[in-house]
Structures are given as C-alpha cells and as structure tokens.
Amino acid sequence: AEDTGVRVELAEENDGRKASIALRLWVEDPRKLKGKYKDGGVIEFTFDLEKEVPEGVAQEMVESGLFHESDAKIVGKSIRDRVALIKWRRERTVPS
C-alpha cells in the first residue's frame, strides 16, 4: 500500500444507484491538517460520481483551510482511487 497518510472510504451503504455518495477521508498523519483542524482526522463529505472531479474536491479542502496546498495532489489522488473503485464495482453489478 502507498504511504500517503490519507485514506478514503465509503461513509454509507452504496446502493449502486445514487450519483451522490458520502465519503469519509481518514487522515493518518495529523501533520497534514492545518491549524485548528489538527485535532481532526476524519473528514466527511459528499461526492457526485457523475458531475464532480476528485481533484476539484481536494482543491476545495485546501481553500477551506483543511489541507496545505502541497497535499492537494495526494488528497485528490486518494479520492480518485476510491471513486474509481466504486465506479468499477457499479459497472460490474448488474441491476436486478
């Protein structure tokens, strides 16, 4: 596994239909979070599988003061990897 210090997982049951899903981002390395968020470690947010771009959400987190600009790439990639997996699973699931 890559040691990025950031992990993304689904925060809700994935019924395979909704475009908007809840994701939970775990920050394993607290040094990545800024200022008053240093005591945090879990960030929950929703992501639209059809309309949104992982890197865009990572940039919003940076603009919101959660992450340093230098971590935007890692955060974006972590979200992208998870989203790709979720989409892959959906494509393989044949609706009954």
Binding site: D39, G40, F45, E60, E63, L66
Partner: peptide, 27 residues
Amino acid sequence: SATTQVVHSTGRRFIVSPVPESRLKDQ
C-alpha cells in the same frame, strides 16, 4: 464533541471530527 463543519463557497460541507480511539494506532 469536537466536530467542526466547514462550508466551502461551492456549498459543499466538510464535517471534520477527531479520529475515534479505536482507530488510533501507535499512540
């Protein structure tokens, strides 16, 4: 709890919480 909400200008909400004890390791 120490949960904090941040709302970006796009309207997206980020909910920041501490890591639960059970998920902490090496501490």
